[in-house]
Design a protein around this nucleic acid. Structure first.
Lengths: 143, 143
DNA sequence: ATATAAATGATAATACTTTTCATTTAGAGC
DNA sequence: GCTCTAAATGAAAAGTATTATCATTTATAT
């Protein structure tokens, strides 16, 4: 189940952040898009309804949303960073190198590996980033 | 066993790239550093011995080295991209969120998961990026 | 309704990366 | 070794992404 706008707003409040129209707009845009969006793309989307919102506010809001784990950040080669709403348990990505489609997936737990790494290196693992790059069905067929 | 400078140079040749002094210098710098270096850091290092080499050449050379899989690219939160010599079979990273230390590790194969993803989504997987973020032993102790 | 700390937008500054183009050079062929 | 040519280089500029500054506005507690 994906996070709802309502829950995201509540989480902001809980952590002492004000619920401004701008932040609502960003949340709405993220929550209503299945895609990963770059800050600029998100800005364009938000501006459709709220033309005065600045790109800087997008950056600032994303920073908060990522900190509260309400959105997740994607790093895929090249100039990176795009964002999408966080889906609990779905923190891995499958990225098409051709069309850029992103599929989230879950069901693979890295806990065992994390423990081994802790024993061997003393690293206390806080998070991970697992991304696969490939070519999606469509792109493979439309050669 | 890590790649030697000699092998990297040979690989360049094999693929029809010229072996210029600048490229030698970049290869030397990468091969002799255990750390992941950003393009800028690499530039500084190279300039110690070859002050005239431009940053653009660093970027261009890195592009080739990554394409030939002689170096690997790291994406770790924030403004990303750093590079290190590729160690065959060691394509995963353990990054300290505190001091930035990077440990490569291997021994965990994602082949099984890749096959499952192929069956379920039709994605033909070409590569992956697995990175753990955490705090290294030192940073945990020196609170 | 008011006070206040936080948030916003405009602007500028900074950093990162790519493009363009004239000049230089590595390496193939002789 | 010398010549030729395609490829590589460096300088400069352009393009893009991100962060900082600051005066003004605003959400919310009271």
């Amino acid at each position: 189940m994906r996070l709802t706008k309502r829950k995201m707003a509540a989480a902001l409040r809980e952590h002492g952040y004000k619920l401004t129209p701008q932040r609502r707009a960003v949340i709405t845009a993220i929550a209503s898009s299945p895609d990963h969006l770059t800050p600029t793309a998100l800005h364009r989307k938000v501006q459709q309804d709220h033309p005065t919102i600045g790109l800087v506010t997008i950056y600032r809001t994303l920073e908060i949303l990522v900190k509260l784990e309400l959105t997740c950040e994607l790093h895929a080669g090249g100039s990176c960073r795009s964002y999408t709403i966080a889906a609990p348990g779905l923190h891995h990505h499958l990225i098409c190198s051709d069309c850029g489609e992103v599929i989230d997936f879950s069901g693979y737990y890295l806990a065992e590996l994390e423990q081994r790494l802790y024993r061997e290196t003393g690293f206390e693992i806080e998070g991970h980033l697992l991304e696969f790059i490939g070519r999606c069905q469509n792109c493979r067929q439309n050669v």
